[in-house]
Design a protein around this nucleic acid. Structure first.
Lengths: 236, 236
DNA sequence: TATTATTGTCTCAATTTGTGACAATAATAT
DNA sequence: ATATTATTGTCACAAATTGAGACAATAATA
């Protein structure tokens, strides 16, 4: 088990990440389960004294997903005194046979900077961190109880994601590079949590002039084949 | 001169605040000037180990403005390695005759959580902090060069403020409790940085059903007197 | 060759927004 | 008293956007 040396990290600072993926039907996020504790948590970590905040988070998300060049956005910093719970942290350290003296700094109070990531579900190979049994996808509306304020962090991430749906091209990061109009509509629907009207959606999206049309996709289904689209790199 | 004892504060963490006020014509922010250095900066501070992040910021903004119960919103955390500049910080400490040994932790790298505040310009009595000569209002488009990345922080605050203009009732916090439609329109115009059409604006705002109409305001001017409005506390 | 489900597009209605017009009015000038 | 002036509140109509349904095109299957 690797040791987290106090002198390498900024004290009282951590980050948490809400990593969104889309399996074609549901919006999901990655959740860790700690060894022998029944405790669920968001992937997170600490910031080294000699690295920038963004670097630290990018590195951490890459370790959990295997993916580089990910869409990452910082959305809120949580700094309550009550959010940290030393007894929970102590239990996690004990169950992992970590030296409590060396890691006492982890029992302290933490201010956590939260990020969300959007990733292509099919390209991810989730890897648990050193303290965890597993890392798995959970549908956003079927989450287990998470430790500390992590459920609150997820809710906030969702709010911000909804808000950014139009201007930040959320779909671009959750879909493969070529996709049908129906797939894109489904992304909008699961993020917004409501159904959208097909014709209006199609007209609106095409009207934005952000999509490029490609060849048709023959799915082997008994109906008209849809076009494939990709996002234009240059907006005109 | 008061001493900032290292053991009282979380290390490597600071906050900065962009305090917006509206004088009826321009959007302004409060800027500090440090003793004998020609250095300008945003009001900021540090977080004590036994206080929440929000408390720390609230307290700091109150000290600079004299105002309690202020509209405060966190908008971004800045964590680059390059944003901190020990040589600048050293100069400020020296010019204030502060013991460099006791305050060496201030020369370290800082991650800063940024907030913006909206306040009623006429009710503020700006008070410089211990290290500063002055604290003054500067129009948002006539800012001096600020130290470190503070100009960048202001720009980001403005972006977020524009984004929140509709949903967060920005006007409510920048205006007195009763105001004319023209005053409200002016707030929208200076925040957005563009002129708005009077009739469309009035119809849109009234259509939101968020304003209450009161008596007319007789200004002693040679034309029809406008109504006064206030924001409804309860949205229907 | 008919059937089926889905897609792309069109049309018309409903709603929202842009733009100008106009009467009402609070002080001032005549 | 009366006309003048600048601004306000509201209306009317045009333009643009969105809602809702209709319909032909079509890729596989019966």
């Amino acid at each position: 088990m690797q040791v987290l040396h106090k002198e390498d990290f900024i004290q009282n600072i951590s980050y948490d990440s809400v990593i969104f993926g889309f399996n074609g039907k549901q919006l999901k996020i990655l959740v860790l389960e700690y060894h022998n504790t029944g405790l669920f948590a968001l992937p997170g970590g600490f910031v080294r004294k000699d690295e920038s905040l963004d670097e630290a988070v990018k590195k951490g998300v890459k370790e959990r997903t295997g993916l580089d060049h990910i869409y990452l956005e910082q959305f809120q910093t949580f700094g309550n005194l009550t959010r940290s719970d030393p007894s929970v942290m102590k239990r996690i350290l004990e169950e992992n046979n970590l030296d409590l003296d060396v890691h006492d700094w982890l029992l302290d109070r933490f201010i956590s900077i939260s990020y969300y990531a959007l990733i292509n579900y099919d390209k991810v190979t989730p890897v648990p961190d050193a303290l965890s049994d597993s890392i798995s996808w959970y549908a956003i509306d079927e989450l287990p109880a998470l430790m500390m304020d992590h459920n609150q962090i997820v809710n906030r991430a969702l709010q911000v994601l909804r808000n950014n749906l139009e201007k930040k091209l959320v779909g671009m990061n959750l879909l493969p590079s070529k996709f049908t109009m129906k797939q894109l509509q489904k992304v909008y629907e699961v993020v917004l949590g409501e159904e959208l009207r097909r014709t209006t959606f199609q007209r609106r999206i095409l009207g934005m002039n952000m999509l490029e049309r490609h060849e048709k996709l023959f799915q082997g289904t008994a109906h008209k084949a849809p076009y494939l689209y990709s996002f234009k790199l240059e907006q005109d």
